[in-house]
Structures are given as C-alpha cells and as structure tokens.
Amino acid sequence: MSASAPNAFLRGGPDHCDHKRVRYVRDVRDTYKLPVGHAYEHFRPTDETLEHQAGTLRIFEWVTRTYVAE
C-alpha cells in the first residue's frame, strides 16, 4: 500500500462531506479533522472496518464541527 492510499471511510456528518468519504488518514488512531470551507468536520476512529475497492478501510464516525478563528 502506498503512503497516500485510502485507508479510512468517514461515516456520518453533513452531506457536504459525501464526496470526501474515502480518505488517506496519516494516523488511524487519532481524530481526523476534515477542512471544509471555514470549518473542520471531526471524525473519531472506530474499531470497525469496511471492505472497499480501495482496500480495507478503518471507519471514522463524525462527532462535531468547529470553526476556524479569524
């Protein structure tokens, strides 16, 4: 597997994340922050996996949104 091959699936959260569900996450043990506009969608890793055409993906569950300070 290459260093940037998809290894995570982002479950839940707002619809604007739909086209960004399959991702490469550097550390699958930490919460992943997906930048979207002036906010971050936060996804927490679970123990679940999903078989996908990209391979076995760790499932991350949406937990919250935070906004970038100006």
Rank of each mutant, 00 (worst) to 15 (best):
H52Q: 08
R65M: 08
G13H: 10
H38W: 09
G13M: 11
T64W: 07
H19R: 14
Q53H: 12
A54E: 14
D18Q: 10
T31N: 08
S4N: 12
Y24S: 11
T46K: 08
L10Y: 01
L34A: 04
C17L: 13
E48Y: 02
D30F: 03
R26G: 07
E61V: 01
G37V: 02
T31L: 03
R23L: 12
R11L: 13
R26Y: 06
T66D: 10
F60D: 05
I59S: 05
L50F: 03
T31V: 14
L57E: 04
H42R: 13
M1P: 00
D27K: 04
L57P: 10
V22P: 00
T46S: 15
T66F: 09
P45I: 08
L50S: 02
I59G: 03
H52N: 14
K33A: 15
R21A: 06
D47Q: 15
D27P: 00
G12I: 02
S4V: 14
V25S: 08
L34V: 07
G55D: 11
R23V: 13
E61I: 00
P45N: 13
R65P: 00
E41L: 05
T31F: 03
R29H: 05
D27H: 07
R11A: 15
E41T: 01
H52E: 09
V25C: 05
V22M: 01
V25T: 05
R65D: 05
L50P: 03
V28D: 04
C17E: 06
V68N: 11
H42T: 00
R11D: 15
D30V: 04
V63F: 05
A69G: 09
A54R: 10
R44N: 01
L50T: 03
T49F: 06
R26V: 01
D18I: 07
T49D: 07
T66S: 15
S2V: 09
T66P: 04
E70V: 06
F60V: 07
F9M: 09
P6Q: 06
E61W: 06
V36Q: 09
F60P: 00
L57G: 00
V28N: 00
I59V: 15
C17F: 01
A8C: 04
F9Q: 05
H19D: 12
M1N: 09
E61F: 05
G37T: 06
T49M: 09
R23Q: 15
M1Q: 09
Y24W: 15
P6V: 02
Y67N: 11
Y24I: 05
V28T: 14
G55H: 05
P6G: 04
